[in-house]
Simulated assay, not measured.
Amino acid sequence: MIQATSDVRLVDEAPHHHELPADHLAEHFQDHIGVGIFGKSGDKDIVFVCTIYHVGGRQWGIQDGAVMQTSLVVSPTDVRTMRDNAFVANRLDPISRCDDFEVVRTDDVVTWRAGQREIVCQPPHWHVVGEHMGVDVDIHIHGQGRSIPYHGTWDKLPTAGVAGNEQLGIAEGRITWQGVTYHLDEGWAVRERTCLGKGFDVVSLLSAKEGYLWGWVFSEEVKVFCFAQGGSGHFAARVFHHDGIIDFGPEHSSVEPLAAWTDPMTRSRQTTGWRLRMQSDAGMLELEIHTWSRYLFGFHLAKGYTTHSGALGRANGRFRFPDGREVRVDERIAYFEQGFATLLPAA
């Protein structure tokens, strides 16, 4: 039995869009819950993402509805070169909205449901089950530690127009696709819960010139998160270890591109390798990350659209504590995502 911990409250998982001012609801709202699963099944690397977005307003082109993301990559573990691999993914816009979307709350469970897919919230546990786009899953997620504020706290949502958090977890279960079932031998999870109001639509958030980079490295001893958005000033870098979390500021962190690849689907140049360094009085991290299994997805709104590329790979390096203790990171699962916005208003 996997031990689970989390400070997420059940009320956090219920809808929050109604807390936004009326002008936000008229222009843009996006109230969503999602999970990313990063791991292995036998000789295959696995990336699975499911997010249910409750959306509405002028930017979405509908007053109230839902769209759902499903992304899946199943890639041979021994293939270590970026290539034009197969994947499952979709664009997110109201053309393919889910008309049967609902959120059901009882005394001890909040269930988000769209089509045949459900995300069942019972903190510190979550359950993703059902089929979408030919991908059928039954995955249990067990929270690990406290949640991480992502866009601010829920009590500030009515005034700030944005709030949410992320929760690390361990995933177990299975994914079935094209008649083959993959049981997770190693599974790491990130559950994201966010509500975004007017001015926080994804096109506006990603309109900085250099786009963004969002990455994770997973191991038993340490986990690493980094986020950078060039030209916006938005930056985060964290190391999670058994005794707590260490935050590094931009002045103590650097992300250096090491390799790149031109994706034949988008004809754009994408970075596939990075050298990540974080150093302060709290410790020192050095990692080299390379990715080789990618998928694409995007959002289409009134003011433009976004293009995202997520990729799985491996990280190698070390973290050294101030007292000299050192934790090796050898061939650990890494996931790095990057993307940008194109401002192209609808006619």
Rank of each mutant, 00 (worst) to 15 (best):
T271L: 10
M265A: 15
H183T: 10
E220H: 15
A259G: 05
W214R: 08
G199A: 04
K198N: 09
A237Q: 05
K223C: 11
V203Y: 07
L205C: 11
S253I: 01
G211R: 04
G298P: 08
D201L: 05
K223D: 03
L184T: 02
R238D: 00
I245S: 09
E288D: 13
F227Y: 15
V217W: 08
G298Y: 03
V255S: 08
T291C: 12
S207K: 15
V202T: 13
M278V: 01
L276K: 07
G199Y: 05
V180N: 08
Y212Q: 02
F299S: 06
H252Y: 08
T271K: 13
F225V: 01
K223P: 05
W261G: 02
D243S: 14
S219D: 02
Y182E: 00
V202R: 12
H300W: 10
W261V: 01
V180D: 08
L258F: 06
F218E: 00
T181D: 04
H234T: 12
A259H: 11
S280A: 04
L287T: 01
H183F: 12
H234K: 15
W188E: 00
L206V: 04
C226I: 07
Q229D: 01
G197M: 03
F248Y: 12
H242S: 15
P257C: 09
V255M: 13
S232F: 09
A189E: 00
R294V: 00
F225G: 04
E256G: 05
F240L: 08
P257L: 04
S232K: 08
I245P: 10
T271H: 11
P250E: 00
L276M: 11
H234G: 12
S253Q: 00
H242N: 10
S280P: 08
F225M: 05
E221H: 15
S207F: 10
L184P: 07
S207D: 14
A237W: 03
D247A: 12
G249D: 01
C226R: 08
F248D: 00
M278P: 10
M278D: 01
G215M: 02
D243E: 06
R294A: 12
A259I: 00
G199T: 03
R193N: 09
R294Q: 11
Q270N: 14
W261I: 01
S232T: 07
P250M: 03
G231S: 04
W188A: 06
R191W: 11
